[in-house]
Design a protein around this nucleic acid. Structure first.
Lengths: 225, 225
DNA sequence: ATTAAAACATGACAAATATCATAGTTTAAA
DNA sequence: TTTAAACTATGATATTTGTCATGTTTTAAT
């Protein structure tokens, strides 16, 4: 079993504020596992009882809307933590987590984290800062959802993916999403997402082969309105 | 000048986690003021350098979208804090705060709060819990913005106002918003908000006289789809 | 009380988006 | 390799929402 104090991933999240002693203690009770594509980490309404630290892979966090459609609230990537919000407020999860591709995650039980939150002020502050950042991003998403057109939002998603994920040798995005996922990220009907992606392709803004997507004209996408 | 340790308001926010000593210290450097209706507390992009504690009144937090329209992200009411997010992440404000009616607020300088965050783990945890709650609410707003119709969102706003604010002797909501504010809360054109409110009025779901709004049929509003 | 400005209201039309139907294509399992 | 299921694509059409124009009402200042 690998040890937390030697794990590079923790540099990217609040766990970096912990000292060697705490990391060793956490190492002793954490579990590590692989999650295959499409597998559910947890569902809306379930108790998570800990946090996940994403060592590799991508995960979508979604919420079921009243009309029965899933809305993806955010994508979680390597280095991110999952479940802090529910842990801190001692509630069941408000989101469902599904692996977008194969993931490797560590799970740290609630009690360990709470122990550190109550003793280590700098860890608490770091966690607070992480959550403050999430909140700022959420505010932006609210405004975008309310004010931008579907086409703009889809262009934004493509730009975000291009800036966030690696490309394969041919230049295609390393993250593979279904058209339904795109629709769910943007908050529109699957057909609308398909239509707009087809249009972007015709206009030479992107290239697609099956589910593989490549951004050809980033500036063009930024100009969409 | 009133003293924080005797202020009932603090029971409703993270300040409740502070001990008498800290409250006395904060009392010594806080400032209290009245803010008149329509007055700007701070704008997007400004440094707040502290937090506001709302003793009375209502405030709208909004963000300018790319198309030039203001989107109200949330309403802040008596007992709430404003500016925690920016303070914690040491950033300029991402939101603009405008008083909806006359407010009374206390301003606590950043240094005092940071002092407590670094020393008092239970205060940090309380702050963390407040922010976790805000984040959950923000997630819900995202899903609603993305998946619900304008009519549903407006019905939701009316229900929220009904459940959150007092009514006057005739049953009208104590909080007075312009049609533009309603539009800005749900993310739609002012004309659309006006039209839907008119429709709700015709259907007997609400009553309006000028800017005064009364909810007549809560269940009817809940049934809107 | 008068009056100008702001806010509200509504019609007509345009644009964006959803829905339904149907067909082609890709994917993954047997 | 075959085959069924899932996914992608696109047309036709309906619905929702935005925009522009115009008139009315309310509000607040003089």
């Amino acid at each position: 079993m690998s040890k937390c104090d030697q794990c590079i991933i923790r540099q990217f999240n609040a766990l970096k504020a912990l000292g060697k002693d705490d990391l060793v203690r956490i190492s002793g009770c954490k579990t590590s596992r692989f999650v295959q594509k499409g597998e559910v980490l947890f569902r809306e309404g379930e108790s998570i009882n800990g946090i996940f630290c994403v060592k590799d892979g991508v995960c979508k966090l979604s919420k079921l809307s009243a009309n029965g459609k899933d809305q993806i609230v955010k994508l979680v990537v390597k280095g991110d933590l999952i479940g802090q919000r529910s842990l801190v407020s001692d509630e069941k999860s408000n989101l469902t987590a599904v692996a977008v591709n194969e993931m490797e995650v560590c799970f740290i039980p609630k009690s360990e984290i709470l122990h550190d939150l109550s003793k280590n002020a700098s860890f608490s502050l770091d966690m607070l800062q992480d959550m403050a950042k999430e909140l700022r991003i959420a505010d932006n998403v609210i405004v975008d959802m309310a004010q931008k057109s579907v086409k703009q939002r889809l262009a934004d998603v493509l730009i975000y993916l291009h800036e966030t994920f690696d490309k394969d040798k041919d230049g295609y995005l390393s993250v593979i999403l279904s058209r339904e996922d795109y629709a769910s990220l943007v908050g529109t009907a699957t057909e609308s997402a398909i239509r707009i992606l087809s249009q972007f392709k015709k206009e030479g803004l992107i290239a697609t082969t099956g589910k593989h997507v490549m951004i050809l004209d980033l500036e063009g996408l930024r100009r969409i309105e």
